[in-house]
Simulated scan of single mutants.
Amino acid sequence: MLHLSDPNLPARVSAKLAEYQDEIDEVENYAERVTLGKSRFSSRNTTTNATFRVVRARLSEMCSGAQRCVYCEDSVGDEVEHIKPKDLYPEDVFRWPNYIYACGPCNGGKNNKFAVINQGNLVIVTRPRGAPITPPSLGDPAFINPRTEDPLAFLTIDLLGTFLILPCEGLDPVAESRAKFTIEVLNLNRDLLLDARQNAFGGYRARLLEYRHRRDDGADVNELNALRDDLLATPHPTVWAEMKRQAPFIPTLQDLFEAVPEANEWLD
């Protein structure tokens, strides 16, 4: 999971989302706002809605590769995910900064699971099924938001064996609790993803070796640019980012990146 670029919405689309959100905000009762927000989002998040056609197109631009899920980077991201769950935060149902594209396993698994940081403590605010619809406890979101934060400031990948996503070493207690919560909620270490990251690691390394060999054999700039672009289109760009970050500590990667220093400047 990487920090996302943020393509701007056309003014008309932003205005329409604001109009949709105003309809929700005008309702005084919190429980009624939640119910209305969920209903209106369901009816408007369709392929026939001109506003959401643009929203989906912009979300697709934010994905890596062939529209990969922003969270796991493996499955197709085709569900509009609310980073702050609409079941808890009706005031953000139609807020553009609250959207990303996620896959079914990540979006369905996360659902309305959420937590906040209150006075240095992580407080779960997920509403149990059948519980009264009341506002969540106040606090800053614990879930790492890839639209406003750099997930790599919190998370790392074990490239030397397990390919687990883990909290970075040296985090303060609050940051570490946020990292663990995000990993758990998204189930980022399910077996399928461990295998996929390992395969991506091998793929990136092989493509970089190919680039090095073709460059040293005198390939022209067009061929080299095509090889670079193919590498950057490989799924799991966080693996690539981690390869660059960890290269000084892994001899085989260090040698490779020293031989191809320009790769350090390639965008993830």
Rank of each mutant, 00 (worst) to 15 (best):
D6N: 15
D6C: 08
P7W: 02
N8M: 10
P10A: 15
A18S: 12
E23R: 14
D25P: 06
V27T: 00
V27W: 04
E28T: 07
A31P: 14
E32S: 14
E32Q: 13
T35R: 15
L36S: 12
S39A: 09
S39Y: 08
S39D: 11
R44G: 08
N45M: 00
N45C: 13
N45R: 12
A50K: 10
T51K: 01
V55R: 08
S60C: 11
E61I: 00
G77V: 06
L88K: 11
L88P: 04
P90R: 12
P90Y: 02
V93H: 02
V93F: 02
R95C: 00
A102R: 08
N107Y: 10
G109S: 07
N118P: 03
Q119E: 15
Q119C: 11
P132D: 07
P146S: 13
L152A: 08
A153I: 00
F154Q: 10
T156G: 06
D158A: 14
L159S: 07
F163D: 10
L164W: 04
L164K: 09
L166H: 03
P167F: 08
P167K: 10
C168M: 12
G170F: 06
S177P: 00
I183F: 05
I183K: 09
D191C: 04
L193P: 08
L194Y: 10
Q198N: 03
N199Y: 01
F201S: 09
G202R: 08
R205I: 00
R207P: 01
L208W: 05
D216M: 03
D217G: 04
A219H: 06
D220C: 02
D220S: 03
N222A: 14
E223C: 05
L227A: 05
L227G: 08
D229P: 11
D230F: 04
L232F: 01
T234W: 04
P235G: 02
H236L: 14
M243N: 01
K244Y: 01
R245A: 12
Q246H: 03
P251D: 13
D255F: 08
D255C: 11
F257T: 09
E258R: 10
A259F: 00
P261E: 14
A263S: 13
N264C: 06
E265M: 10
D268I: 06
